[in-house]
């Protein structure tokens, strides 16, 4: 793209702009908490069950709850139809990222000897799956009423055509870009996940991190609004 002349990215955004985010909670009545989140064309559904009794006795921790994350990518989620096995290493890795991200944030000691299940379903994929999963999980956990120290807001950033940009879409991601995903606790600005799989010049790292952090803060605004709207809505329904 003619990045330097018009300062716009391939889809018309500026470097520090997120895609259009839409999110709702409480979309599945069966689950204890659920959320649906769209980062542009990346669409994720999250369902939280628990805290409930642990399935396997052997895994039970006597002082705290265990987190269990399962991630699934729909075969129809990308341009080419492709079925992934449940044991796809890529998916297992991503699930474990999500798990690691939330372990320090969920106050698990409140729920000893129990298990919290987080099921994630990627319905459409257009870049930034991990960030969308983390954000959806945050919303679903809040919806389930599970105690957490803060929101967890995730955002990607990368070096696209000689410039740092956030929330990369699939095209930007796939043109050999170095991409960082970070997940942040917006109140304390603490980072619970920073993940990068390609090489990035050390001089550029700081700029990319800074932008990603800003992206997380923007993300927080959106997510917080969703939760507050939802709460207001609920309150209204209860008074009626």
């Amino acid at each position: 793209m003619s990045h330097n002349q018009i300062g716009l990215r391939i889809d018309g955004r500026r470097p520090a702009e997120l895609r259009k985010i839409t999110s709702t909670t409480c979309v599945l009545s069966q689950a204890d908490g659920s959320a649906y989140l769209e980062h542009g064309n990346t669409k994720v559904l999250a369902a939280v069950y628990g805290p409930r009794e642990a399935r396997h006795r052997a895994l039970v921790l006597h002082d705290r709850a265990i987190l269990n994350v399962e991630l699934n990518v729909a075969p129809f989620s990308s341009g080419e139809r492709r079925r992934r096995s449940k044991n796809d290493k890529r998916l297992l890795e991503m699930a474990s990222f999500v798990k690691q991200t939330f372990e320090p944030v969920v106050i698990a000691t409140l729920y000893p000897r129990s298990q919290i299940d987080i099921y994630l379903q990627v319905i459409q994929h257009d870049g930034g799956t991990l960030q969308a999963c983390i954000n959806a999980t945050t919303l679903a956990l809040i919806d389930a009423g599970i105690a957490m120290t803060d929101y967890v807001c995730a955002c990607t950033a990368g070096w696209v055509e000689r410039e740092a940009a956030i929330d990369l879409n699939y095209i930007e991601e796939s043109s050999d870009t170095s991409e960082v995903t970070i997940a942040m606790l917006p109140k304390s600005s603490k980072i619970t996940l920073a993940q990068m799989e390609s090489r990035l010049h050390v001089d550029k790292l700081e700029e990319v991190f800074r932008l990603a952090g800003e992206g997380c803060k923007q993300m927080y605004e959106v997510m917080d609004k969703t939760i507050r709207d939802r709460a207001e809505d609920l309150a209204r329904k209860m008074t009626v």
């Binding site: 391939i10 018309g12 341009g79 879409n169």
Partner: peptide
């Protein structure tokens, strides 16, 4: 030789 459907976002400002 596969035929793909590509969906892109296009933001108007």
């Amino acid at each position: 030789g596969k035929v793909l459907k590509v969906v892109k976002e296009h933001y108007l400002r």
